[in-house]
Design a protein around this nucleic acid. Sequence first.
RNA 1: GCUCGGGUGGCGGAACGGUUUACGCACAACACUUAAAAUGUUGCGGCCUUAGGGCCUUGUGGGUUCGAAUCCCACCCCGAGCACCA
Length: 809
Amino acid sequence: MESYNPQKIEPKWQRYWEKEDSNKAKDFSKKPKKYILIEFPYPSGDGLHVGHVRSYAALDAVCRKKRMEGFNVLFPIGFDAFGLPAENYALKTGVHPQTAIDKNIATFKRQLKSLGLSFDWSREINTADPKYYKWTQWIFLKLFEKGLAYQAEIPINWCPSCKIGLANEEVIAGSCERCGAKTEEKRLKQWMIKITKYADRLIEDLGEVDYPERVKAQQINWIGKSYGTEVDFKIDNSDKKITVFTTRVDTLFSGTYLILAPENPLVKTITTKEQKESVERYIREAAKKNELERVDTEKERTGAFTGTYAINPATNEKIPIWIADFVLAHYGTGAVFADAHDQRDFEMAKKYNIPLKISLRPKNEELWEKVKNLEVCYSDEGILVNSGQFDGLTSQEAIKKITQWLENKETGRPAIQYKLRDWVFSRQHYWGEPIPIIHCEKCGVVPVPEKDLPLKLPYIEKYQPTSTGESPLANISSWVNVKCPKCKSRAKRETDTMPNWAGSNWYFMRYCDPKNNKALADVKKLKYWMPVDWYNGGMEHTTLHLLYSRFIYKFLFDIKVAPESEPYKRRTSHGIVLADDGRKMSKSFGNVINPDGIIKKYGADTLRIYEMFIGPFDQQVAWSIQGVNGAARFLNKVWQVCFECSKNKKSSPQILRAVHSLNKKIDGDLEIMKFNTIISSFMQFINLAQENKKDVGRETIEKTLILLSLLAPHFAEEVWEKLGHKKSIFFENWPKYDQNIIKKEEVTLIIQINGRVRDKIEVNSDISEREAKALTLSREKVKKYILQKEIKKVVFVPGKLINIVVEEH
RNA sequence: GCUCGGGUGGCGGAACGGUUUACGCACAACACUUAAAAUGUUGCGGCCUUAGGGCCUUGUGGGUUCGAAUCCCACCCCGAGCACCA
């Protein structure tokens, strides 16, 4: 008998599957559809990561099973090819991003194919292909048309040394990722997308999808909806008012000052002559700090007095208006009322000797003494004091009643705030989709007409950013200078490009109809395939890609392009694969595992089995080369058993029961992604078969191979063929297990005395309680424990256990 | 600080109200071999015991239960995400 030689058989079957188009999904097939999606890779120069292998192999197993169960499965693959690394690489080496990406994609394709994954390669997409990004640009035009894309001057991370705007993910601990210089805030006009308009729907519709709790919680947290009250404070000696947002209106009576964000436009108009200098100095200081420094909660509270006062609508007292950098301009109204029941306000008032008042009383008397004397800040809920008619109410009651009271006086109202901010959609980079907008001297902002799409990214030689912070595209005057599509007068193109997320927002729709020239995808095909039935990906995309793409899909639903409002029925996520030292795999640590090496030495099937066995799928796992040996040994054992037993006629009841149990285990565990227990059950089965080779018949071997084909497809095909089959094993139907065969006649009954295991007996599985009790009490071991003691109770769990409860002395 | 996960042998982990430590790795002994590798067999939580066996053990402390790794309460530790969000 030949020994198992993956290096020989794997390429053979990969060629076979490619030739036979084995994994092609058929549009409008009468079979029920399953759309199973993995996050498409960014084709980095490092090649495929063993982490990709784990999640792709897992979902590949799911797809293979669904096909054998009679589903028309769509399991597509593509490449998210725009992005910064290719541009940085170009800056360093002069190699054009297009060239680098093409090369990387070729490597990825070779690697993915060498794993034998059952992708439908005929639907391959590439987000940097003009035929693809034509539709990414089209979506932008639609957003613009509906008023959801707009320009605003907002602060961005600016590297004064590279003279370039940086995305948040390019700023590491307040410094530029490339040169290490401290970043500053710079205000630039940016394209923004109004995702906030969809905030409520993004929360509510989570109710109708099947996502892990932690994913839902993270998205809800990120959107950060909070219910509160808006309160108007009249400015003293003026008609103007300052509106603040609070979730704790119960503390309004202790509001002894107001604080504005330094960037709040009101600051300029209300600051008095006397205070102008110190206020302006404070604003300058605040602007110099980057986000990281401002957020440092350990630092001392600072602020500046504007010289102006406001009237607290609850007490009618005159209270000073301050500015402080811990008040955020972009949240709420950029203004808060400050009181003794907020840690930050409390600290700041202490520092500047601003008067404080108490309006909440804690239950704890000892604490109350300290709170009363302003020794500590009490910020929990309590009972109202010094609050006029509201005294004695709990915080919860007071929030309702005070809001109502303010509403009647027309100085307040219930309000809702979100943490979610609009999405900054501009990047000052080359390697992205150009934003299809023209700035006309006469007409202003004019969209590129749809017929002119795709607006192709021009091929350039130099990627150096401009000194003004514009993208390198601004340097190509022949591309920038155009005629206005409306009035034909002089105009300039927008030179910002889109962020990396633009292409991945809708790629799953393109898979449904990847070659369509007339639409991003044919409506009928979308209706057939969408929504994605099962989408697996990383937790790191929860608040970026996953949220963005849900939003864009909702928008496309609203303009009648998408057939429903949620793109993904079910989301699951994998844990990351760490290096054997427990750290992230990274070139700089020198601990990266290249799947090519493992495939060469052990074969793709071994690698796949190992990676799925390594630990729970949704948790992070550390790589271990010794573990790969275990997977290789397992496949070798299966190989031996298959050939040694294939001539046996019949299987023993024990083996039959075991293989049916295994079948059941796989059916159950695959659906809940417990791949590690599937493989351990498989190992147990093979160990049993190996010990009882005479009892393993051919039909059991064949069943085993079909079960194993999900995990080790090349292996299964090869043995299947060697057993004399002419057709691919993947044409077989998924086997059904028989519960009657699984049911055991004889079981081990556990005997407990007072809950402790004292004995075990082999009994018929449907033994009655009376019989079991009699049998138990006749056992020598049991007698020892119940001698001269009173039996108080007998607990009987049929087929499992009997517990004798006796009096303890 | 808030939200969500976790803490079980030397290690990865299984069990998620009913035999704790399945399966794998590592380790040890033996067999096969001139030798090594590979493979196979056996052992492998701790303490006590001549044996039979006994006792302890799922981060810590309580509770519910005939019975708790599993359910409840409090605390400690680790990981992930958010974080001056009023």
